[in-house]
Amino acid sequence: MWAQQLVRPREFVEVATTRPDADDLVDGEVLLRLRAGAICGSDLPVFNGLLTLKQRDEPGVENPPGSPMHEVVGEVIATRDPRHAVGDQVVGWGSRLNALSELTISLGDALNSFDPRLSPERAVMLQPLACVLHAVEQIPGVAGARAAVLGQGPMGLLFNHALRSAGARSVIGVDRLDRRDLGARMGADDVAHLHTSRWVGQLSDADRPEVVVEAIGHNVSTLDHALEAAERGGRIFYFGIPDDAYYPVNMQRLLRKNLSLMSGVTLQRRVMLEKASRYLAAHPDLVEAFVTHTFDVDQAQQGFELATAPTPQTAKITLKVAS
């Protein structure tokens, strides 16, 4: 079967690789034929050549064919999960993180059906939306709060929308890229076109947010900026993926400001995918605002290059497979 494989930093080639079949499945798994995928910010360090924490923890897990991609829409062609039948169209997690290939194996518990009126390259946005909705559910006191979202990439943009829908009194985005137009269309009252260090340095006490979402990840300093920005008694959700196992935390600030620091991965994935489907049905305009670029899967190289150097109008980048 075909797969895209990173052969060196920032360079994909199409390769022929071993084709999985039904005999490779264990209980609870399904075999998918790829219909569409999407590029996640957590894929980009791998694309750029970083040895990730997961790869450090699991020696030998380098860049197998199909890596990195985990946001996926596929057709079930074999199953050992009674909730999924052959022929089902599903969206969710490519749980082996190697879904940039003709076929991929995933956990059935990380997949769900979707509205067939959505094209695969649009339906794939349900996976990141499920992640954001789960995170927002974990944050207490969103309704009526001033909220700030550090980072206005695809996930940060979804946080704008989800926090607004959860009743936040105001939502401010922060990004080094000029996201004022796109951020506002996704629910922000304003977007500061600033590095987070400069933004927090000019905050007045009256403007400090009660809820801060760190949606940047991949560096240490932004967590401290979130702690510094937050109002006393504020809640910080660290959503961005760390590239380092250990982060220094200003415990004096955390203690003296009575802050709550939260983080975590998405649990109950099928439940959250169903919630994401209902959310999207209630906000249908979100699809066109969020999915801004789609490439054929054999143009994965171009898609990833755009993701690493987005324009102000670049939100979610998806990849489609010709039917």
Rank of each mutant, 00 (worst) to 15 (best):
V91E: 01
A36M: 01
R80D: 07
V136T: 08
P120A: 05
L100M: 15
I139H: 07
S119W: 04
R96P: 05
P64W: 01
Q127H: 06
A145T: 09
L157Y: 05
H70T: 08
Q152P: 06
P154F: 04
K54M: 03
R33P: 05
L50I: 03
N98R: 10
L133T: 04
Q89W: 15
L111A: 02
C40Y: 02
A85S: 15
D88R: 08
I77G: 09
V136K: 00
A123S: 03
Q89V: 10
L129S: 01
C40P: 10
T104W: 03
V46H: 10
G87H: 14
A147E: 03
R117A: 14
G141H: 11
E137Y: 05
G60V: 09
N112H: 07
P140V: 07
P120F: 02
G92F: 01
T52W: 11
L50R: 13
N98T: 13
F159Q: 00
L133A: 01
N112P: 06
N98W: 03
P140I: 06
E137F: 11
F47D: 02
A36W: 00
N48W: 05
L34T: 05
A99P: 02
D88I: 11
V76D: 00
M155A: 06
H70V: 07
D43H: 11
L51M: 11
T79P: 03
A36I: 03
F47L: 05
E71A: 06
N63R: 13
M69V: 01
S106P: 09
A78I: 04
V90P: 03
L100T: 00
V73W: 05
S106K: 04
S119V: 12
S119P: 13
M125E: 08
R146D: 11
T104I: 05
P68V: 02
Q127K: 10
G74P: 00
G74V: 04
R146G: 10
S106L: 15
P59C: 13
A110H: 07
A147H: 01
L50T: 09
C131R: 02
V76Q: 00
A130E: 00
G60E: 01
T104A: 15
L126T: 00
V86Y: 14
R56I: 08
Q152C: 15
D115K: 11
G66I: 09
L44W: 04
Q127G: 06
W93S: 03
P154N: 09
E62V: 15
Q127W: 05
F114W: 01
R80W: 03
R33W: 15
A123Q: 12
D88F: 04
S106V: 13
Q89K: 12
D88L: 15
Q138N: 12
P154H: 10
V142W: 09
R96M: 15
L158N: 08
S101C: 13
G41A: 07
D43F: 06
A36G: 11
